[in-house]
């Protein structure tokens, strides 16, 4: 398990990264936390001629920060830093809730938030949380920058819409509204594993109604958010929520794999969704 040969680049600034990607194009791969990339390289499941290591960029923030009504996460913010951040817990609680399910301390101490979002594993926690929040990334290249909203970030499992010369220097997440409640639930075979099924939920209390939205992980897709019909608070505990979630689950297309059948995954999506939305509703009404 040793990687095929590659050239290693250690740029010191974002501009140098732009430059390198402009030169190297599809031959280059960005290395940040490396928690997915390095095993893939070691197992020779993929080979890249060039690795561009972001870890030595000067002046990159180690912590998430707030800018206006958005939470901004730089490309080298580790999952551990985001998990420990009081700012994230307060402004984007679903990200904190999701991070608790991400792997183990050793992995979180290296793995980056942005890296996990861009890697786009349908069973990973962070893409679902970002989709639920309608976050966006800022793609950059020598040609300039452009925002990519979560809904258009992924084209499928492990595939994103970045151009060959683009990389991401920021993840932006809208901060919570006062009447928002969030919850995250997941089932995995072992603590810290990729999800068999998970649900991220937001419930917004407005005008005496509850507006719920859910995003799933482990259910095949990436980036979809299911907005449920607005319902009265009492419907959340009644059959109304179940039927709304049943409709949402029907839109999912999970697959069978060694650990779970699609049928079991649908069952989990419904069961976890019920308690997840209820918990988010409780928080919204508090």
């Amino acid at each position: 398990m040793k990687p095929a040969p590659f050239a290693y680049h250690r740029p010191g600034s974002r501009e140098e990264v732009d430059q390198l990607l402009a030169q190297l194009g599809s031959e280059a791969k960005i290395l940040a936390g490396g928690q997915s990339l390095i095993p893939i390289l070691n197992m020779r499941l993929a080979a890249f001629g060039h690795l561009v290591d972001l870890n030595h960029l000067a002046g990159e923030p180690a912590e998430p920060a707030v800018a206006g009504d958005e939470l901004v996460v730089g490309p080298l913010v580790r999952q551990a830093a985001a998990l420990e951040s009081a700012l994230v817990a307060e402004r984007a609680p679903v990200v904190s809730q999701a991070l608790r399910h991400v792997a183990h301390p050793a992995i979180r101490s290296r793995g980056t938030v942005v890296g996990s979002v861009l890697h786009g594993d349908p069973a990973a926690e962070l893409p679902a949380a970002v989709a639920l929040l309608a976050g966006s990334v800022r793609a950059r290249s020598r040609r300039g920058t452009r925002p990519i909203p979560a809904a258009r970030l992924w084209t499928g499992a492990l595939e994103n819409t970045l151009a060959e010369d683009e990389w991401v220097d920021e993840l932006r997440l809208p901060v919570r509204q006062p009447d928002d409640g969030f919850a995250f639930e997941e089932f995995a075979r072992r603590s810290g594993d990729y999800a068999i099924c998970g649900v991220a939920a937001r419930v917004r209390a407005a005008d005496g109604e509850l507006k719920a939205a859910v995003a799933y992980l482990g259910m095949g897709g990436l980036g979809q958010v299911h907005a449920l019909q607005p319902m009265a608070a009492e419907e959340i505990d009644g059959p109304g929520l179940r039927s709304a979630l049943t409709e949402a689950v029907a839109e999912l297309d999970p697959g069978d794999d060694l650990h779970a059948s699609a049928r079991y995954r649908r069952w989990l999506a419904l069961e976890l969704g019920l308690s997840c939305v209820r918990r988010a509703a409780e928080r919204a009404l508090k």
């Binding site: 075979r189 072992r190 603590s191 990729y194 060694l258």
Partner: peptide, 14 residues
Amino acid sequence: NASFMDFLIPYATE
């Protein structure tokens, strides 16, 4: 399942 991602050895948590 020839990797520790899919050959599931229980962790201390299990």
